[in-house]
Amino acid sequence: MVSFTILLFFAVSGLTLNHADWFTSGKEVVTKDSGSVNLKWVNQADTNKLNKLQIVEFFRGKHEVKGALSDFRIDDREVSLTFNGPGYLADSFIDRETGKYELTTTRFGAVAVINDLHKGRDSGKAWSWIIDISAVLMTLVSISGIILICFIKKKRLSGFIIAAVGTLVCYLIYKLFVP
């Protein structure tokens, strides 16, 4: 049943990935916020002394920003932060002179979350393990099916013929239609 659940998830998310236009039209929600951070956090000549953790936790606490910090850039005029998660993106730009910031948060909807989980994008180490374990389970189920067909004399030949035809059809479709 675990393999069934895994197979169902990856089958459905494979369909939503392959036909994203069917499922994602108008589903994203964008919110914008602004405010100011403590000027001491961003207005220092030595950018190595900026307390990055304090800035990140400010946005997590005040605006409930989620996802992993994927980018933290500092230049002469601004500090920019990007947070990514499955179906989620948050960008913040902080003016280093004034401490004023603009935060844009985009939620792409449930289908985007499923698609990102399918690909393992922005989903963290734990989800990466789930994908790996799922792949191993599906491989074992597939191999056990091949082994079982070997022991059923009446179905063995037709089973292997069907497997070979399926493999050949997939290969031909790939060769004919994939540039």
Rank of each mutant, 00 (worst) to 15 (best):
K153C: 01
K153E: 03
V56A: 02
I94A: 04
R156K: 04
S25V: 14
K154W: 03
A68K: 15
G14W: 09
V56L: 08
A135C: 13
V79C: 02
S142L: 13
R60S: 12
K119P: 15
K125W: 10
I6W: 00
S123R: 01
G35M: 09
T31S: 10
A68F: 14
R156P: 02
S92F: 11
L17W: 14
V169Y: 12
K66G: 11
R60D: 13
V111Q: 04
F4Y: 15
H63S: 00
T5P: 12
Q54W: 06
L172W: 15
G145L: 13
I143S: 11
T104P: 14
N115R: 06
K100E: 12
W127D: 07
I6H: 04
S70N: 10
I161M: 07
S128K: 08
T5R: 14
D76Q: 12
G120R: 09
E78R: 15
A45F: 15
W129D: 09
V111R: 05
A20N: 07
L157Q: 12
V113T: 05
I143P: 06
N38P: 11
A90K: 05
R60T: 09
S134W: 12
H118K: 09
T47A: 03
L15V: 14
V113L: 01
A68D: 14
D95S: 11
A20Y: 11
Q44I: 06
A112L: 05
K27D: 14
S34T: 03
P179F: 13
L157R: 11
T105L: 14
F177T: 09
V136S: 12
K66C: 10
I152Q: 07
L81S: 00
D132Q: 05
G14M: 09
K66P: 08
W127K: 03
V165H: 07
K49Y: 10
I152F: 11
D46A: 08
C170G: 12
S25P: 14
S144R: 07
I130E: 12
T105H: 09
Y101P: 01
D122Q: 13
L81P: 00
L81D: 00
F160V: 00
V56M: 02
D75L: 05
L157S: 15
N43K: 08
A45S: 14
T139Q: 06
